[in-house]
Design a protein around this nucleic acid. Sequence first.
DNA 1: CACTTATTATTAGTAAGTCACAATAAGGCG
DNA 2: CGCCTTATTGTGACTTACTAATAATAAGTG
Lengths: 165, 165
Amino acid sequence: MTEHFDGQEAWAAALRAHGRRVTKQRLAVLAAVDRHPHSPAESILAAARTELPELTAQSVYVVLGDLTDLHMLRRFEPPHSPALYETRVGDNHHHAICISCGRVEDVDCAVGHAPCLTPHWNPDAKPMTIQIADVMYQGICQDCQRAQQLPPQSSLTRNKEIGEQ
Amino acid sequence: MTEHFDGQEAWAAALRAHGRRVTKQRLAVLAAVDRHPHSPAESILAAARTELPELTAQSVYVVLGDLTDLHMLRRFEPPHSPALYETRVGDNHHHAICISCGRVEDVDCAVGHAPCLTPHWNPDAKPMTIQIADVMYQGICQDCQRAQQLPPQSSLTRNKEIGEQ
DNA sequence: CACTTATTATTAGTAAGTCACAATAAGGCG
DNA sequence: CGCCTTATTGTGACTTACTAATAATAAGTG
C-alpha cells in the first residue's frame, strides 16, 4: 500500500508540474492505465471504477485525451481496435500486435536510440519534420500459432479479446 | 482511354486469379483507390460513383474489406483518422502523416529491403512471428510549418481534410 | 472560508463502420 | 443462347467508440 501511496504522490506531482489540478478521477485513471497497460478506454473505465465507482465514461475520455496531449500517457491505435493507452512514455518503444488474438507486446527500439526517425523520402516528396515514428509489428503469437496447428477446424477463429496486455 | 481499359483488364485478371467474380462495383472501387491513394471509404465511394452512380456505401465497405484480405489493397489507420486504402501493395513501404493537416506521403523502406521485420524482443517477451511492420511517421509538413509561422493566431488550426493524397 | 474557474457529470449526437437478409447478376453448363 | 447456382450487391437496422454542449461540482488561491 505504501507503493500505491507513492504512485499517487508521483502522479500528483506530475499533474501539478503540468499545471493540472490533482483530482481523484485523474489519479484513478492513471493508476488504472498503469496497472493495465495497452488497454482501451472502456477497460480503463472498468478498472478505475473499482477504486472510484462514480467515475463516468466521458470523464475517462476527457482525462485520457488531456493526459495524452501532455505526454503523461501514450496512445496508439492498432488496426481493427479501439485506441489503447499506456503509461510508458518518453522512450520511443514500439508494439507488436497478434492479428489473431489481439495481444500486444512492447518492443524496444530496433536501431539504437532514435531509430526510425529518418525516413527515406522519395525524390518527388516534400519531406516533413518528423516528430514520432510509431512502428506497429503485426504477426501471430506463439499461443495462436499452436492453436491453429492442432485443431484442423475453422481457420478464422479470431477471438475478440483485445487490450488487457 | 486505352490506359483505362488496360487497367480494367489488369484488375479483372487479378480478381479472377483470386477466384473472385469480376463486377463493375469491384472495378470501380479499384479504379477509385488507384486514382486516389490514401483515401477513406467515404471518398472512395464518392470517386467510384462518378463512374458507377448506383454504388452503395455498404458495397464499398465489403469490397474494400475483401480486397484488403486478398492483399490487392492495403489498409492503414493513421491516428484520429478513418482507415485509408491504397493499391500499392507488395513492397513494404511506410507512411508519413502530417499531424496538422492530415496529409499522407509514402516513404520507402528505411533499411534495405525488409527492414523493420526484426523487432528486438524484451528478455521476458514471447516473440511473435512477424508478418508486417507498419511504420507511421508523424510530423508537420512544410506547408503547415510555414502556415504556423506567419499568422500568430490559434496554434490549434488543425483542419479536417484527410485523405485525397 | 469564500470564490474563481478547471474539471467532471449529464445528456445528446456523430462518424465509421458492422450485421442480417432480400434482390441481383457473374460465370458455368447444357 | 439461356438457365441455374451462388457469389455479390443493395437495403435497412443497428453498434461501437467517441465528440460536443452545458450544468453541477470541487481544486486551489487569497
